[in-house]
Write a protein that binds this DNA or RNA. Structure first.
Lengths: 240, 240
DNA sequence: ACATTTCTTGACTATTTGGTCAGGATTCAC
DNA sequence: GTGAATCCTGACCAAATAGTCAAGAAATGT
């Protein structure tokens, strides 16, 4: 899970003897991994509930159970830690689109994706919130990723969906906006979980309520994506 | 627009001569209104792009064009200013549900609501973002509002929709989750506008693209909410 | 006019916070 | 063992920031 691209003794620290710092040496990896893991998990929690600006390194260190100075040993700057957290999250967030292949059954793929995203919002609410917060403030750290990998991914999946549409196997919904909608709806149950709980009249959204939310989301998208039953039922396409 | 419940010379300032402080006096209202307006608008912008913790009163004051000390004259604490901004936003956010009356045409009401919410995300993106940020961090300031007015509102509108459902005039979607979904989808175009722009491959979402997003959202919800044409077609024949 | 209230603002302060550092403790390869 | 890399950490520091204050400048009612 670690190995986030941020080597520990940063440029500054490695000022004097810069010989074999390239690889952190295959030696003592246990301690580093352990502490980085602790710090990453603590940081995710704290960033999730306070945002980047609102989080303090002291609090993260306390939550991780290590002295602040030790945190700075692994992550020289607050931003390094934040980046590491985001990198972890992106890896998770990107997945789950495998179902969208030309041969797949469109509605089944859609349902699987919605369910996967709902599961994500249940299992990794902190990750979702950190991600949301980053987007909300203009994605200063992951903008390049959004314009790169994510954009490419969406474009390729949109092509698949467009093909399904022209075959009449799914309703003619704009695929890109469909993705935006799915992300929005599923993440709302993590990011704005406070609002959901408040409107539902509970302190915390229960597992059961989350399951109901999942069914509601699935129903919404499946109903919307259901191809118009009528159509012209000709050979290839339909009402083009 | 001002008159946000936060009178200027707070408890502290009004320590000595506390006689007729109840009403700010109908006198000099011009200056106060003007400056509070400037500050509120500046604060909304700054809070929108930096969040509560990330925003600095100095920046808000600069953006409003007044000295920092003058800001503190009207809003003794940063939180007072934040509350005032939120109060303004809530008033806006609450509206637009008038269309949901028992007599209304369900799909028309739904469409009107979605369009209104999309318009909101276009016209008040900063308000939307401040609101989103507040929710994201657990709604420390407006939690009571969510559990009170908002919850009641949703409950009453959900009852209307449930009635529509039992009359077969709209698809059997959970009304409360329908609201969550509509809010999620429409606000995503304000709150996560960075992501939308990135995936669309543009720097800024254009007016035209926002219009397309609106049509996509309307299509999504109308298709999902369309009652199943078949049904039982009994006594109170609906589909008029 | 003039007393009174409201407003304005530069200068100041207390606190928080990210980050540094030097010296010591561990750990590991050999 | 032992030497070298790695790790640990209390004590510090400089910068940023929310909030104060007191003295004076407008504005206002009568």
């Amino acid at each position: 899970m670690p190995e986030t691209g941020c080597l520990a003794p940063s440029k500054k620290a490695a000022g004097k003897a810069a010989k074999a710092v390239v690889t952190p040496a295959p030696r003592m990896r246990r301690v580093r991994d352990r502490n980085q893991g602790l710090l990453l998990r603590a940081a995710e929690r704290v960033f999730a509930r306070a945002g980047f600006a609102g989080a303090t390194v002291a609090e993260i260190a306390r939550e991780a159970g290590v002295p602040k100075a030790n945190l700075h040993y692994y992550y020289p700057e607050k931003r390094d830690l934040y980046r590491a957290v985001l990198d972890n999250i992106l890896a998770l967030w990107l997945g789950e689109t495998d179902a969208f292949t030309p041969e797949a059954e469109p509605l089944a793929a859609l349902e699987a994706y919605v369910r996967a995203k709902m599961r994500f919002s249940r299992d990794y609410p902190d990750a979702s919130r950190v991600f949301a917060n980053e987007l909300l403030h203009g994605a200063p750290e992951i903008g390049a990723y959004l314009r790169g990998a994510l954009r490419k991914l969406v474009a390729s999946k949109a092509a698949v969906i467009d093909a399904w549409i022209s075959e009449g196997r799914i309703a003619p919904l704009d695929p890109v906006h469909l993705f935006f909608s799915i992300w929005a709806v599923t993440q709302t149950y993590a990011d704005f979980d406070t609002q959901v709980a408040a409107v539902l009249g509970v302190r915390q959204v229960s597992a059961r309520q989350h399951a109901e939310a999942t069914e509601a989301a699935v129903a919404l998208f499946l109903r919307a994506a259901r191809p118009d039953a009528v159509a012209s039922r000709t050979t290839s396409g339909k009402l083009a």
